[in-house]
Structures are given as C-alpha cells and as structure tokens.
C-alpha cells in the first residue's frame, strides 16, 4: 500500500488517489506554430525512466486536487510531493 502525501490534506492511503502519468511532459505553447513532431512527442513519446519519476496524481476520493509526486519506479518510494505550480 502506497502512502501518498497530498500537499493539501497530508498523508493518505493509495486507495484515495488515481494516477495521472508523466508530469515532466510540457504541452506545446499555442503562441507559435507547432510542428507535428512536437505534438507527437507530447502525446505519445515518454522517457519512461527506471528510477525517479515525476508524475501527476489526483486526490480523487479526497480534496480532488491534482498534484505532483516524485516517486521511484523501482522501489515505489515516494521522495516528495508538491502542488502543480511548485517545483519538485
């Protein structure tokens, strides 16, 4: 059982959360022309690291806030959590 520290509610059991995937992906800025490659990289391609992974989680059965988690994909250890607009 993972224990995830929601930045708003504190530590809660994994059952209250749902996963939101890689948080290091940056949506291309709409300010300029976006190439197909940029869109493809954003939508389909992943670093998929073994080790530390920056990811989104959703406190879906709690405060319903999205936030970021730094977690190991080998040991599942959670190093740090942060609000979406904060740096991990």
């Amino acid at each position: 059982m993972l224990e995830i520290k929601c930045p708003y509610c504190g530590k809660r059991s994994q059952n209250e959360f749902s996963y939101g995937g890689d948080a290091s992906l940056k949506r291309p800025s709409l300010e300029k022309e976006i190439s197909d490659k940029e869109w493809n990289d954003f939508i389909y391609y992943r670093k998929n690291p073994r080790g530390k992974h920056e990811e989104f989680w959703h406190h879906i059965a709690g405060c319903r806030q999205w936030f970021k988690v730094l977690r190991s994909t080998t040991t599942h250890e959670i190093f740090k959590t942060a609000k979406v607009n904060e740096e991990l």
Partner: peptide, 13 residues
C-alpha cells in the same frame, strides 16, 4: 497496478 513501475512485484490494493 496503475502507475509506472519497473518492480516485478505489485501492491495489495
């Protein structure tokens, strides 16, 4: 299990 993982073991929930 629903999150990226390279661990060949899962979680009880």
């Amino acid at each position: 299990d629903g999150y990226n993982s390279y661990a060949q073991r899962g979680n009880l929930p």
